[in-house]
Computed example of a mutant assay.
Amino acid sequence: MPTFQSKTFRRTTTASSSLGERLGALYRAKLPRHPFILFGLPFISVMVAASFALTPATALRYERYDRKVQQLSQEEAMELGLKGPDGEGESIKRNPRRRVVGSEREEYYRLMAKDLDNWEQKRVQRFKGEPDGRL
């Protein structure tokens, strides 16, 4: 029984083997020696390039969403109470719940003075036919 040769088998290059096949064979032969340069570096570069390429697409998505938000006319704004009678600024009707008066330090101490240990959990009233999560 003959012994096997230690040389690897290489096909003879013929006219039928294309450039792509030869480059592929060369790539597969070099890959075990330099895995990061031939596989890792191209992969990382594609990921970084894709992030830069997708940034304008994401910005375009949010710009389209912002354009969909309807701008109110002056009459609608008056009806909703968003503008004053002169058409500028906020309405006098609109009262915020609570304004922050004073500095941040005063606000901090006001919040710290609240009793957070005594509280009661209350369920929100549901519409008729809406499941409330009770079994």
Rank of each mutant, 00 (worst) to 15 (best):
S73E: 11
Q71N: 03
G24C: 07
E75L: 08
S51Y: 07
F36K: 03
P2A: 10
T55S: 04
V124T: 14
E107T: 05
P32M: 00
L80E: 14
A113I: 00
L31C: 02
A29D: 13
L23N: 09
H34R: 15
S16M: 10
G84K: 13
S18A: 09
T55K: 08
S51D: 10
L116K: 14
G20I: 08
G89W: 05
Q5Y: 11
R105M: 04
G84M: 05
S17K: 14
L72Y: 15
A53S: 02
G40K: 02
V69K: 13
Q121C: 03
D86R: 06
R28Y: 06
P96W: 15
T14R: 12
V124A: 12
K30T: 02
L41S: 06
T14C: 05
G40H: 02
G81V: 04
A49E: 05
P131R: 07
A57F: 15
A50F: 15
Y27A: 04
V48D: 01
D115Y: 12
L19R: 13
Y109M: 07
D132I: 00
E76C: 01
F4G: 02
Q5T: 09
S73A: 04
Q71C: 00
E63K: 12
T3K: 13
L23A: 13
A53Q: 01
A57L: 14
R61W: 15
V124P: 01
L80W: 14
Q74D: 11
N95E: 12
R98A: 05
L72K: 08
F52S: 01
E106A: 05
L41A: 13
R97N: 14
S51F: 12
D117V: 06
R33C: 00
R64I: 02
G89R: 09
Q74H: 04
A77Y: 03
V46D: 06
L19Y: 14
Q74C: 02
E106G: 00
